[in-house]
């Protein structure tokens, strides 16, 4: 049971949680600075396409991965132009970004459908992969998954221990006070937004470079929306984001396996599991008195003076 069911299940969990985790962390960074970005789905799609196109033309997957991140940044720039520069509504801008991103990558991506490009394959980390059970779960993945193990830690240190991270948090909470304290509120918002966009882009790039090695319409498949939801689920904390992303990925993998065993529960009900569980965990946290508030200036634009 353990060898044949649980270990493969958890290994699949790590993989299916990884793109969501990248995107969730990116969105946390964005929102910490006070910008609500509902364009994650469109950004991931676009990044997945750009990464694939770069991998196909240059043959260099690492370059492609970085370019995927940059595609996310460029998309975030559009959002920033509308919301930060032009003070547009963040909700609509984000939704429009999703519509635009999904459309654009389908439009541009047509010639790339059915092509093969180099990507990341799974390999065993020496020594670590021979740890019983854990080795099979965590250390027989691809390079981008290993890379992703470090990000929450870096993220935590960045947010809590560096001046820049603390300043970004301050801007998301009280831009007025932050500005009075000599912080450049608008500039910090831009940095959080673009940095977050880069992480979201990496999540998208993961989909076309490692999760699958192909380009196809709809590759993001709703993961961007899950990331938006998981930010709230995580109470804007990277640690809980890890938990949320793996939980969601794990339940999805679990229901597929329940089907593969041959259960008699209708598949529609099984597919509800990840969504229902997300709500249940939130309720459970709430009952235990846990909770977290959004950055208090989330979604509110900073108006220029004068």
């Amino acid at each position: 049971m353990l060898e044949s069911f649980i270990v493969p299940l958890l290994a699949a969990t790590v993989q299916s949680g990884t793109p969501i985790l990248y995107a969730t962390l990116g969105e946390i960074l964005t929102e910490k600075g006070g910008i609500l970005n509902l364009g994650v789905e469109g950004m991931m799609s676009m990044a997945a396409f750009v990464a694939f196109a770069v991998a196909y033309t240059t043959g260099n997957p690492w370059l492609a991965f970085i370019c995927g991140g940059l595609a996310g940044t460029v998309m975030a720039m559009l959002h920033g132009f509308v919301c930060i520069t032009c003070l547009g509504n963040q909700v609509v801008s984000g939704l429009a970004l999703t519509i635009l991103g999904v459309g654009l990558c389908n439009f541009l991506g047509t010639p790339f459908i059915g092509l093969a490009a180099p990507g990341f394959s799974k390999f065993a980390v020496p020594v670590l992969s021979s740890i019983p059970y854990l080795g099979k779960i965590f250390f027989r993945q691809d390079a981008l998954v290993y890379f992703c193990y470090f990000i929450p830690f870096i993220f935590m240190i960045f947010m809590n221990r560096t001046r820049l991270g603390i300043a970004i948090t301050a801007v998301g909470e009280k831009p007025g006070a932050a500005a009075a304290a000599g912080l450049k509120a608008v500039k910090l918002r831009w940095m959080a937004l673009l940095g977050g966009g880069f992480l979201i882009g990496l999540g998208g790039a993961y989909l076309s470079l490692a999760y699958t090695h192909l380009w196809a319409n709809g590759l993001a498949g709703g993961r961007g929306w899950i990331a938006v939801a998981l930010v709230i689920f995580a109470f804007w904390r990277p640690g809980r984001a890890v938990f949320g992303a793996y939980l969601f990925g794990g339940v999805m993998a679990f229901q597929l396996r329940l089907q593969a065993i041959g259960t008699h529960i209708p598949s529609s009900l099984l597919l509800m599991l990840p969504y229902a569980l997300t709500i249940l965990v939130l309720i459970f946290s709430a009952v235990r008195g846990r909770g977290g508030n959004a950055p208090s200036h989330l979604g509110i634009n900073i108006e220029p003076e004068g």
């Binding site: 132009f81 509308v82 520069t85 547009g88 801008s93 635009l100 459309g103 654009l104 047509t110």
Partner: peptide
């Protein structure tokens, strides 16, 4: 023209209307 073109147009229109609304108050 592929269907995706419609989404591109929709996204562009929405974003530019949004960005332009600034001019009502500024």
């Amino acid at each position: 023209i592929p269907a995706a073109f419609g989404s591109i147009m929709e996204g562009l229109i929405l974003m530019s209307v949004l960005a332009g609304q600034m001019l009502v108050t500024y």
